[in-house]
Amino acid sequence: MNVFRFLGDLSHLVAIVILLLKIWKTRSCSGISGRSQILFAIVFTTRYLDLFSNFISVYNTSMKIVYITCSYATVYLIYGKFKATYDFNHDTFRIEFLLVPSAILAFLVNHDFSPLEILWTFSIYLESVAILPQLFLVSKTGEAETITSHYLFALGSYRLLYLLNWLWRYFSQGFYDLIALLSGILQTVLYCDFFYLYISKVLKGKKLSLPA
């Protein structure tokens, strides 16, 4: 494992923990898209089914379990415990527009036409666009709390770091996986606009608000 891969995993973990802590400490999930969180729970569930079939390392297995557990905990906090603070009115992105094309594409373009492999591929496609309901929510309300911005930055950085990891692996091992690579590029591109706002505003101590 190279440093980019490790930093990517770490950044992903930090994002997930920031979100959980934000909701827990403020007793509120306002500004957070429950729909994106449902998509992430689906992504982890369909990708990590190999927990039961393929052992890679203790690190790998523990991270998978942590990601899955945290994502279900987040969904529970939003739709269960702190439901009263959830922004139903603004979180209106139609997730079937992401789920259905990802599923169709996973059936058409995959490494191997087997159930586990199709589910893995589906999770990769779905993850690349799963943040859209959250970005849609931010654009609808026109602003994001600073802690939510940190969450989005850590979550976006994770796939960017993975891209560097794949570049590294390509040159050092000749390894590449086009499905993950192209989806990873799309995923990172979707964050670009946000990255720009984050660096130009949030890092200078201002709250992230969109121009009217």
Partner: peptide, 10 residues
């Protein structure tokens, strides 16, 4: 040899 189906990443 690296097999992409191993999916050793997260």
């Amino acid at each position: 040899e690296y097999n992409v189906y191993d999916h050793d990443e997260l």
